[in-house]
Every structure is written in structure tokens, then in C-alpha cells.
Design a protein around this nucleic acid. Structure first.
Lengths: 336, 336
DNA sequence: ACACCTCATCGAACCGGTTCGACCTTGCGA
DNA sequence: TCGCAAGGTCGAACCGGTTCGATGAGGTGT
């Protein structure tokens, strides 16, 4: 079922079939109809590899995800699904590449082998080697999160510093004096993971603005660590009455530790932060938190990438999202 | 940076470079070294599209996932991540295609355009049109779940009927007389989703074996539905003392409803079923449940697919997994 | 010394599309 | 009536690899 076969059966040349399909040159109505008839009859579709070779583009986007060993968070998973869906709307396919901070075989295969027209890079570090690699390869790309000094680059990010700042102000308004930030894992912070670092600076800055006493702790991305972390906080700083967190994976553990300590939320202790809406709703009570808009980020990322692919010379654009904090039931006035 | 350029700089023909790279014909040590030197210097990698066209295979697997609109469950997400990782170990890339029961554009693009060497089909229905499509296209594929009458086909599945049967026996051993199955959504059941149907039959059969009174309900895949569903159960069958479920998404709602009804687990009410380990641990108390081994399923699925691609004439194989039920703390003796 | 074989390499064809330039009609205006 | 433009089609080149058959150089056996 190749284009030559179609041409033969329709009694025309291969180029005429090609033009009938692409519409890049006029084809007489009679011929077009004959060709379309044959195509429909045989269920023909052009071979994607051949087309990619000839056109010099693959109609495929690469999506670099964190390695599976480090479990993807709920937000990240929603993001992946949305990217695939938005790309499909553009008639683009999505190739997945699990890759740690260092560029591994999978990443190299996609980038150097010209398997994709552009790349979306998830969970980038403040100084990410893969960014340099993509620039060197002159492959269009959009990062989720931005590097420390995003000269002229394309990215989409959530303004963690600002969101955390708002959370702190919200707690201060409620009368809290002693607050803690439950950050993500040590390793991520050490590796230079932007959201973790920016949350931390935003948190400390806001606490200072409002004259609060602030502590920050790192917590591995799993329930057990959440419990341990909370107990640690109670032991070290018993005066703390509210927590801000961006660590979704630790929430179940946090919940359990709160119950064990027989603390009522928000009566005895307030919790807020940046949390996927679905998880915030699942908490008991539902969490007052900013929801990372994974779907919108995916749409923006794909749109930016498509724009960049269409015109590689365009001046880079970016988007810094500031989703609103949804008021639910986990924050209340200080009461001790 | 194409193979001609490498050949020119190494002073050999294109075919010699190709043979040096593939090792399919001997190349003298001196020439090989010269070629490798040039390749390393220029950072050359063969163009994936050209190679795919020439070889007739893309070194890419297609993974058909449920559409993003229907949120992927935790297990499914773990599965996707594992598939990508296992495929990467085989030096294969993974192309994602969101597709509902009906074959849509994305699915057709992947299948007909020969973009992939084989397909893994998630969440198939008992009678799935996409299976027929793949057979017609003579494209190797492995299904997750099996169709009603899997003549000679390749698949991997979890033995829901058996697992649910064991759950019921476990509850019967603890003295429970009245049990309920909280199944997945009406729509899925109506569409002929295998695990839902097989869970139901396994549940009823086991209850009969042990002389239990059994009820089954469907529940949409979201927390709110879980609450409503549980309240409905209490109202209709107040004598029920234990539930078996495969609906992970409803768990948070179930949890909330239990608390509202002031029921202690497992003192007043026992819960078990087939649940992702991570979610089972997050429940309060941790759930006694069978864990769907997403990682192992992914490994098996990819291995089977690779085997089938290597030898399309091989006799089909399949795997029916029966993971053990992990005893945690959500089931106890009947006490009323 | 000659035939013969092996090893290393080359050139050409091929995979299945796209695209460019050329060609032949046909219709229109001057 | 002739010239020219536009419409429709074709053949050939090209994208960047792989693979097959042929060729030449060098070594061996008789």
C-alpha cells in the first residue's frame, strides 16, 4: 500500500497523488476523485517514516519525564496526559523519554536521532545540562520550570515564590506567628530543583515581611516521611501552629501524624500550600491550597513549542502562572 | 551530519560507514578506527526516520492509553511509567496515543502510518474494535486485560476474579455474613470493561461458595461518588459488615463517609479489595488488599511484545497474574 | 606461475514519500 | 491569428540511511 501502488491504480504519477493529498498544487476534480476513490478503497495512509525523511520533520514532540524510579507526582501525571491530548489536537504524536538530570541514552536517542521536532522538558534543575544539549542541537524546546538565568528561552512555570508568599500572608492574617515550610526531598533541593528553592525563598521572605518565626524542613516524597517529618516538627518547634507545603506525596503521612497527635485541623493546626486539587479535596478536611493547573500548563507548553517549531527564529516567550488559592477548610484562626 | 559527510571525512564510502556501525560485515581495524574518530568528533547519530524507512521498522512501541478526560488511575500511571522504562532498556522508544474505545485519529495515525513496530493496548473492553483493527493491519500487539474469547492472542492480565474470590474467603474466614462489592462506574461496566465484570462474577461465585449474602454496587471513579455510594449501602443493607472494592478513586470518599458514620475500621467495618499498594498504605488504617503489580505487568507486556515483533509467527503467549493479598489493618473479625 | 579464496571496500539500488522544473493543453486578450 | 498565462500532469532528484552484488588486493596451495 505505498504511494506508487495508489498512483498505478489511479492511472497517474506518484507526484500527482502526492499533490492531490497535500493540495500544494491544483489537481483536476476528476483525477482527485479517482485518486480518493482508490485511497479509500485500499485504506491507504502515507508511511510516516518516509514522509518524515522527505519533509525533514517528524510531526512528533518529545516529552522528557522524570525517571519512573522516582514516582511521578499526581500533578506531573496529569500534565503528561494533558500534553498528549493537546498534542493530538495539533495532529502531533508524543514520544516519551524518561531521563534523570544527566542526559542518558533515551534522551540522546530522541535528540540526536532527530526523532522529534521539539521537546518539552519536565522538572528541570536550575542549571540543567539537558538545556545546553538541546541548544547545541538547535532543537526547539520548552521547559517546565525555568533555569536560574533564563536568558532568552521558552518556558512555562508556576510562580511558586509568589504562591507560597500568599499562603504565608493568609496564615499571618489568621494570626499565626510560628510557621513551617514542608519542602520536597533533600536530594531535589540539593540538585537545584527550582520550585523547591523558590518556595523556600518565597516562604522566608514573606515570613520576614510579616514578622513571623519561620522554619523549613525537607521531606522525602512519600507518606512515611511525611509522618516522621511532622513528628520531628512537633518535637523541635512545639510552638508552630501552621504548615505550608508543596510536598503532595507526604500528605497521607501528614494526615496520619495529625490524627495520632490528636490535632484538629484547622482548630489546632492549619495547613496550606501548593497541592493538586484532587489531592487537596481528598485530604480531611479539604485543603485550602493553590492548585497547580497542569492542564493549562500543558496547553501553554505545547502551544509555545508548536509556535517555536513553526518559526525557530521567533523571540522566545514564556508564561509564569499564578493560580488562585482555593479556600477550603484547612486553615483557621490561631487558637493557642 | 549525515552518513555521507562521515564517509567523506573518513575517506570511505557510505556503505563502509554503515557496516562499521552495524558490524554486519567486517571492516578493517584501521578503517573502523578512523570512522569512529570522525563520528565521535562530529557527534554523529543516524537519522531515525531514514533508518526506519530503510529497515522497515521504527524501533518504537505504541502505548494506547485511556483518554486524559477520564482520569488515569494510580495503577495505570505507574504502568505507563514502567512501560517507558522497560522499553528504554530495550532501546525502544514509546509513542503515546490517547484513545477511547473507538479508534480515533491518533490511534489511526499510529497504526496505519506504520509509526510503530508494535502496540500495547491498555484498558481494553471485552469486545474491543481496536483489537480487530490491529489484527487487520497485521501489527503486533499485546493487550492489558483480555477479550472475552482470547482465541490466540497475546495479553497480560490480573486475575481479578480469583483475587476478589480470595478477598471474599478472607472475609468469610473472619466471620462476615453480609458483604458488598463496590465496583467501578456504571459506564465502564456497561461498556464491557473486563476487570469490572470479572470482579463481579468472582465476587458472587465466592459468596455463594461460602454461603454469604452478597450485594454489588457500581460507583463512579471519584471521591464524592464513594461517599454517596457508601451511604447508600448503609441505608439499603444496614446488616453489611464488610466491603470489597476495586475502585481506587472512590477511596477518599469512602474514608470520609466512614468517619461521618463514626465507624471504626476494622472494628465495625472491614474493607479489602484490589488496590494500588501506595493507596492502600495511604488509607487509614492501611488496607488489607491485593496490589496490582503495575511494574511487573509492564515488564511482561513489553517482553511479550518484543518477542512477538522479533517473530510474528510465534505462538501467542499470555500471563495471568495473581499477586498475593497483603495483610494490613483494614479487616477484622465480625463484631455485631 | 597461476588459479583460487578471503577480506575489505565500493557503487548502485532501494525504502516511500515530497518537491522542483519541464512539458503539454487550453483559454484568453491583443 | 499569435502569444502568453494558467492549469494539470509527469519524470527525476532528493531526503539519509541499509543492503546486495561486484571488484580489487593480498595471501595460499599446487
Amino acid at each position: 500500500m505505498n504511494i506508487g501502488e495508489i498512483a498505478r491504480r489511479a492511472g497517474v504519477s506518484r507526484s500527482t497523488v502526492s499533490y492531490a493529498l497535500s493540495g500544494k498544487r491544483p489537481v483536476s476534480a476528476a483525477t482527485a476523485q479517482r485518486i480518493n476513490g482508490v485511497i479509500a478503497e485500499l485504506g491507504y495512509r502515507p508511511n510516516a517514516s518516509a514522509r518524515a525523511l522527505a519533509e525533514g520533520r517528524t510531526r512528533t514532540l518529545g516529552l522528557v519525564i522524570p525517571p519512573a524510579s522516582r514516582r511521578l507526582t499526581d500533578v506531573q501525571l496529569g500534565f503528561v496526559a494533558s500534553v498528549v491530548e493537546v498534542a493530538a489536537a495539533h495532529d502531533l504524536d508524543v514520544l516519551l523519554s524518561p531521563s534523570g538530570g544527566d542526559h542518558d541514552r533515551s534522551f540522546e536517542r530522541i535528540v540526536t536521532g532527530r526523532r522529534v521536532d521539539g521537546v518539552i522538558l519536565m522538572e528541570i534543575l536550575l542549571d540543567d545540562p539537558r538545556v545546553a544539549r538541546l541548544e547545541q542541537e538547535a532543537l526547539p524546546f520548552v521547559t517546565i520550570g525555568h533555569v536560574e538565568h533564563p536568558g532568552a528561552s521558552w518556558w512555562v512555570d508556576v510562580d511558586y515564590a509568589e504562591l507560597i508568599r500568599r499562603c504565608v500572608h493568609h496564615l499571618a492574617d489568621l494570626g499565626h506567628q510560628d510557621v513551617v515550610l514542608i519542602n520536597r526531598s533533600d536530594e531535589l533541593v540539593a540538585a537545584g530543583y527550582g520550585p523547591a528553592l523558590r518556595s523556600s525563598t518565597g516562604f522566608l521572605a514573606a515570613a520576614e515581611e510579616r514578622g513571623l518565626t519561620a522554619h523549613t524542613v525537607c521531606c522525602a516524597d512519600e507518606p512515611a516521611a511525611g509522618s516522621a517529618c511532622f513528628e520531628d516538627i512537633r518535637r523541635r518547634w512545639p510552638e508552630v501552629t501552621a504548615a505550608v507545603t508543596i510536598n503532595e506525596a507526604a500528605l497521607p503521612g501528614l494526615q496520619r501524624a495529625l490524627r495520632r497527635a490528636d490535632l484538629d485541623v484547622p482548630g489546632d493546626f492549619s495547613i496550606t500550600g501548593v497541592i493538586a486539587g484532587r489531592l487537596a479535596e481528598a485530604f480531611h478536611p479539604p485543603l485550602t491550597a493553590a492548585d497547580v493547573p497542569a492542564g493549562e500548563m500543558a496547553r501553554l507548553a505545547v502551544d509555545l513549542l508548536v509556535e517555536q517549531i513553526a518559526d525557530p527564529g521567533a523571540t522566545p516567550r514564556n508564561a509564569l502562572l499564578q493560580p488562585a488559592i482555593a479556600l477550603r477548610s484547612s486553615t483557621g484562626a490561631r487558637r493557642r
